[in-house]
Computed example of a mutant assay.
Amino acid sequence: MQLAINFVKESNNIVLYIDTKGDFSAVRIQKILEAHGLSHKDMAVIMLKIRVVYIWNIEELIRLLENIKKGVLKIENLSMIIVDSLPCLMFQHFGDNNNIGLTFLNRVINYSRYLSKELQIGFIFVNIQTRWIDQDITDPEDTESACSIKDLTYNEKRTRCLGKYWKTIPALVMVLEKLKLETNSCVTIKVLVTHHINPSAVKSCFINVSAQGVI
């Protein structure tokens, strides 16, 4: 939501916010704008530039992108599309033996690439990162006490959803990890930014998010 606000705040650009979870909050947007001391008129102008569409399955997303490509759906000054989030649509096809989910995902990527190249529309896809913990048990022999001491070691593996296919799709990857909740209800988030061509080149920063948005 903060990205959408920042994108339209000082420009005539339009953001298409695709909500797949049904949790977009216009009230949240309004509170962030109020915290920055904007007038009701200025808030209304900004909020009108954030167009919200509710999508409940990936077929609907494909039709939407197709209609934008063909000009059936015309949004003047459309410069950014935010999909929040893509795994919600893909999870519906987990377990399909015919890989239909991967076929749909491929069509979404093809349309996105076309719109990015031909119409200069940027895309932000919200993804989910999973954390897997593997437990290893070692049982070294203690010669002095003639008893065994079991040491537990835990190996953490983090994996972005949408599989290996998705790994090289995004131009930039921003990984957001919530660190702690302060007493003033401010959440500290660590942000890591990587490029798929050079994953070792990592940039990082910390941001604080409160009722006023990113502060």
Rank of each mutant, 00 (worst) to 15 (best):
K31R: 14
I18E: 04
V214M: 05
A35N: 14
R113I: 11
S25I: 02
D23M: 10
V83L: 15
N98V: 02
L78N: 12
V27N: 14
V83K: 05
I133N: 13
H196P: 00
I29F: 04
S11H: 06
L33N: 08
V83E: 07
T153D: 13
G213A: 07
L38V: 08
V214N: 03
I100A: 08
K164N: 13
F7Q: 12
Q92K: 12
K167W: 00
S200V: 03
T138M: 10
N57M: 04
L61S: 04
I133Y: 09
D142F: 08
N208W: 00
R107F: 06
F7Y: 13
Y165W: 03
S25Y: 02
F7K: 13
R51S: 03
I32T: 12
L48A: 05
V202K: 13
K117W: 01
T143S: 14
M1C: 09
T168R: 04
I14H: 09
A201E: 04
T130G: 11
I207K: 00
M1V: 10
I82E: 08
N110K: 09
N106S: 12
K167L: 09
K74H: 13
S145C: 14
S116Y: 06
L33G: 07
K70E: 14
I124G: 01
L64M: 15
D134C: 03
A44K: 13
L38S: 03
I18N: 07
I149L: 15
E182T: 01
G122A: 12
T194W: 01
T103W: 02
C147P: 01
V214I: 15
L162E: 01
H40R: 10
E144T: 10
T138N: 14
H40W: 04
S210W: 02
K164G: 02
N67M: 05
E144F: 12
L3R: 06
D142I: 10
K190Q: 02
N198I: 09
I68S: 04
K180S: 00
K31T: 15
S85P: 04
Q2Y: 06
I18V: 15
V72Y: 11
L162P: 10
K21A: 14
F24A: 11
N67D: 14
K203R: 09
L16E: 12
D142K: 08
I128D: 07
L61Q: 06
L3Q: 07
M80T: 09
M90Q: 13
P170A: 03
S210Q: 08
P199A: 04
H196T: 13
E59L: 10
V175A: 13
Y111L: 10
T159R: 11
I100Q: 07
R131D: 06
V72P: 03
S210C: 14
L38R: 06
A44Y: 09
L152D: 06
V173W: 01
N99L: 06
D142W: 02
K117H: 09
E144S: 11
I100F: 01
R158A: 04
N127P: 07
V173K: 10
M174R: 01
V27S: 12
F206Q: 03
N208Q: 12
Q212F: 03
V209R: 01
Y165F: 08
V15E: 07
N127T: 08
N184A: 11
S112M: 14
V83Y: 07
D23E: 15
